[in-house]
């Protein structure tokens, strides 16, 4: 249908060229397309709902099931985007990992992914990213004993810059590549889950766990006992931008997502997110 329209237009345009100056053509083409609606929004409009991909596991305060319904920063943002489009929202929570969530969008199984997705270069090759709605610094959670024994009283900043120990990360996450790029001398060890990364860090099997500042600071919120063994170090000049992933060939949808983010949300930082996390934990505790 799109191809046919284009062909007719081209023929029409050629006729115009014969009669008028070329600039009039440029004005006519978009006018003709708007009549049928932007092609990337047509599918959503006809379906009547926006499919949002999210990981199968909860991730408070971004998205988590509470009292039987889903809520959080990402859920609110998804609702706002759907409202702007004038459709319902449907969450697809079948993806097991963050990379799978991105793959859902890439393969066209979901329209967008709002699932605390980090913007990375390799992901940007297959999907388009929105303006970040949360900006987090990078964080390392060190095993205190390993840190004291290996740094040998050196300046901690210097030690972290030239870190040559073992870093634990979640397998197939953005942190594998981030770690390789930012700590070229370190050995990156992948673990299936974040919990396994933490266990390895507490036992001293790896020297540090690497993720964003929020996740790193959340550890001592969730498990106070770990603050005896673990020590958080924030890296000020390595940032992690959380953004919405959109199909690469959906410019109108991306523009609307960006507009919603820019109009309705101030980019959140780790302090905001930690605060929201504490609130969400507190309400959970009261049930």
């Amino acid at each position: 249908m799109f191809g046919m329209l284009k062909r007719t237009l081209t023929i029409g345009a050629m006729l115009f060229v014969a009669l008028f100056a070329t600039f009039t053509v440029a004005q006519t083409v978009p006018d003709a397309t708007t009549l049928a609606g932007p092609p990337d929004l047509l599918g959503i409009a006809t379906r009547g709902k926006l499919i949002v991909a999210m990981t199968s596991f909860d991730n408070a305060p971004f998205y988590s099931v509470k009292d039987g319904h889903l809520e959080g920063i990402d859920v609110e943002l998804s609702n706002d985007i759907a409202e702007a489009l004038g459709v319902e929202v449907e969450f697809d929570r079948s993806a097991e990992t963050f990379n799978d969530v991105v793959a859902k969008v890439k393969n066209g199984e979901a329209d967008i992914a709002v699932s605390k997705i980090s913007r990375t270069n390799s992901r940007a090759l297959v999907v388009a990213f929105s303006t970040p709605y949360v900006r987090l610094k990078n964080g390392l959670m060190f095993n205190r004993l390993n840190l004291a024994q290996k740094s040998q009283g050196k300046d901690l900043g210097d030690y972290v810059r030239n870190f040559d120990g073992n870093i634990g990360v979640i397998a197939k996450s953005a942190w594998v590549i981030n770690g390789q790029q930012r700590f070229p001398k370190a050995k990156i060890i992948e673990f299936k889950t974040w919990a396994e990364v933490l266990d390895a860090t507490i036992s001293g099997e790896v020297d540090a766990a690497y993720r964003d500042e929020f996740e790193v600071r959340r550890i001592t919120e969730d498990f106070p006992e770990t603050s005896i063994n673990l020590r958080a170090v924030t890296i000020a000049d390595a940032r992690d931008s959380i953004a919405v992933a959109v199909q690469w060939n959906a410019p109108r949808l991306l523009a609307i997502v960006n507009q919603v983010i820019e109009d309705r949300m101030i980019a959140l930082d780790a302090d905001d997110v930690i605060e929201m996390y504490r609130e969400s934990i507190a309400t959970e505790g009261s049930h």
Binding site: R161, V233, I235, A236, A238
Partner: peptide, 23 residues
């Protein structure tokens, strides 16, 4: 004990909060 350490570091002391730069 962990809770004590957490409480002390929330109190604004820099003992447990550290920020470094890669540059």
């Amino acid at each position: 004990l962990g809770a004590i350490v957490n409480k002390e570091s929330h109190g604004g002391s820099s003992i447990n909060k550290l920020e470094v730069t890669l540059a």
